[in-house]
Design a protein around this nucleic acid. Structure first.
Lengths: 192, 192
DNA sequence: ACTAATTATTAACCACTGGTCAATAAGGAG
DNA sequence: CTCCTTATTGACCAGTGGTTAATAATTAGT
């Protein structure tokens, strides 16, 4: 009656996710297929459906790690030794750098409109935003309006959404990232 | 040797585009298929490939109209009787309203990363941006930096890219649009 | 009017996609 | 040696974009 011990070479959720993740680094969501995962794993694509109810579920599991990474970037910037205004800049730059360095993932996290993915990652996205908003507020010397913080976030998102068409990583847009971050800091600083 | 006269009920580029366009208003790029177009037109989907080399080409033809419409919105706002600062607000609001009211189209114009579409609409997108940049500069009382204008555009783009997940037209985001536009005007006004 | 060339269309086909499911293999428990 | 559960296969479904040989339809030249 006890469940079968998973032998080392068995198909597990973990190794499926690993393989999907591996392919997801160089290909986007639509380019990674159930069959390409199965092929690399040496099993039939039907077998994967025993472990995951659909494709979206696999990628949602992967996205969890990336939402964590994004949150970590925020934390690390917050806990650094720099002064507030430097930290604020780093938070903005960090967000854009993350988006540009994980474009396929960012697309699924914040850009793509997939009926299945959408609902799943929306909650995590909201949490990431909350964290961002709090960080920005705590790094500001003055009381910021909620809408200003929100507009700032949207502007960062816009940068990633735009530059993904032109660059393939943060390095290639370094200067533009810096300029945009400084623009937003300027915008926040200005009191009506 | 002269080409056959196209009889009224013949399959033409125009009626293919019309049908594709029609479906494109309620469905997005991936939901409109060659077969769904052919079915509605009462022909085989293969026939469409005689007139267009692929699916992207059809939709690119449609996008041309939308780029024009976006440019027109800009022009109309510029030629209005309002003072400069009101016009500037209207330009920002107009852009976001366009994006939210034509979400499927905006997606293809500025968001989607399709190997075929990308290259085709990039030129038109650049032209639209140029027009936008010039308008914003001419509406400003002071000399704006190119990067500030660019950051502003990116922030507008970010708004549309973000809110498409939450609203289905401009009306539903009216207030947020206004707030965001005012944030950007504030940012532009501020001299370093 | 007949023929030849051109144009337009069909339908079968290809290689994919995500997803389902009956059959079955593999292993553990009694 | 059974019974039961777990895991896996592979055929199948409906759909996608795209290709192509055959052919229908129309025009041009004689």
């Amino acid at each position: 009656m006890s469940p079968r011990k998973p032998s080392t070479k068995d198909l597990t959720k973990e190794i499926i996710i690993n393989e999907a993740h591996k392919q997801f680094i160089t290909k986007d969501f639509h380019q990674v297929s159930m069959r390409s995962i199965a092929k690399e794993l040496g099993c039939s694509h039907g077998a994967i459906y025993y472990h995951f109810k659909n494709k979206a579920e696999i990628f949602y599991a992967i996205l969890g790690d990336y939402f964590s990474e994004l949150n970590n970037i925020l934390d690390e910037n917050m806990n650094g030794p720099e002064d507030h205004s430097t930290k604020l800049l780093n938070v903005f730059v960090g967000y854009m750098a993350f988006g540009l360095n994980h474009q396929s993932q960012y697309e699924l996290m914040f850009i793509m409109r997939d009926s299945e993915i959408d609902g799943l990652s929306q909650e995590a996205a909201n949490l990431s935003y909350e964290k961002f908003a709090q960080s920005v507020q705590s790094l500001s010397n003055t009381e910021l309006s909620i809408s200003d913080i929100h507009s700032t976030f949207i502007a960062l998102h816009g940068f990633v959404a735009h530059y993904r068409h032109y660059v393939k990583n943060y390095e290639e847009a370094k200067e533009a990232v810096d300029v945009h971050a400084k623009f937003l800091i300027k915008a926040l600083k200005y009191r009506e």
